[in-house]
């Protein structure tokens, strides 16, 4: 069992080696530059905009890491044949998949964690330099702990996207995996429309198909509570828990399928 953490640690090490975490520097620069520029521009909304920007950047940066590393995790090993020596070690194929997944999730966790700290630091600074009176005009305090709900759900969403990328990469080329993963990401944000399909079309067959697709395809819109959090609308713990449970089951299904497919493959 100790093989999985070792593979995970290796994925993390490689991502550090590949300078993936440099995006954190970019993130910090972006936040600080934006907080300076936007402070000059807009009337009393700079804290809101920094929150919007920080949370969106956490999600976008994470998304790119999840997809572009996720699709290469397994397929690169196969393509470059390094998998031959790896699988001759006492590693079962499912351990390889799970270790790779855990490693990328660890990378994302570090990434999102550092970004969250940076965001709170910038907001804390902005709050500190303002007068008490001005601070009262904000919808939510600058360093609102409720933002953690949005950050947690962003992270859970990234875990799901990683599982999607990994799933595709167990049987298709990196290019195709990237296209499919981004495709599912987009669909995942649109598919709430499928739920209300019966109000638009007559055919019961089309309605049931839309229903099936709505539940079968990953639904990513519910993970997005950035706007609610920024506007100090409550996001209940129950909601976060339920949405995370959804992700956990979905990730479980994806990994199970990935492991099943991968274990049957011939590495010719």
């Amino acid at each position: 069992m100790s093989v999985i953490p070792r593979i995970a640690a290796q994925v993390f090490k490689e991502s550090v080696r590949d300078k993936v975490l440099y995006n954190l520097v970019l993130f910090a620069v972006l936040l600080i530059a934006a907080s300076y520029l936007i402070g000059q521009l807009t009337a009393g909304q700079d804290v809101k905009i920094i929150k919007d920007l920080g949370l969106a950047a956490t999600q976008i940066f994470g998304l790119f890491i999840a997809v572009f590393i996720g699709i290469g995790l397994v397929s690169k090993e196969v393509e470059r044949r390094s998998i031959y020596s790896l699988l001759s070690k006492p590693v079962r194929r499912h351990e390889l998949i799970l270790g790779k997944y855990a490693g990328l999730v660890l990378t994302l966790a570090v990434n999102v964690g550092v970004m969250a700290v940076a965001l709170y630091a910038v907001l804390g600074y902005m709050s500190w330099v303002e007068t008490e009176e001005f601070r009262r005009s904000w919808e939510a305090p600058a360093t609102d702990p409720a933002m953690l709900a949005a950050i947690v759900l962003i992270f859970v969403q990234l875990m799901l996207v990683t599982a999607i990328a990994l799933f595709f990469s167990t049987f298709s080329s990196p290019m195709l995996s990237a296209v499919l993963t981004f495709g599912l990401y987009v669909v995942g944000h649109f598919n709430a429309d499928l739920r209300n399909f019966e109000s638009v079309v007559e055919s019961p067959a089309a309605v049931s198909l839309a229903r099936v697709l709505y539940y079968a395809l990953p639904n990513l819109a519910p993970f997005d509570v950035k706007a609610q959090v920024v506007h100090a609308q409550p996001v209940s713990l129950g909601y976060v828990a339920l949405t995370s449970a959804y992700a956990a089951a979905y990730i479980g299904a994806l990994l199970l399928a990935a492991v099943f497919i991968f274990s049957k493959r011939d590495f010719k």
Partner: peptide, 15 residues
């Protein structure tokens, strides 16, 4: 896995 613990393998044109 128990067998793999006790073997070594050099693939052709290793990478």
């Amino acid at each position: 896995v128990e067998a793999k613990r006790r073997l070594g393998y050099l693939p052709e044109l290793p990478y």
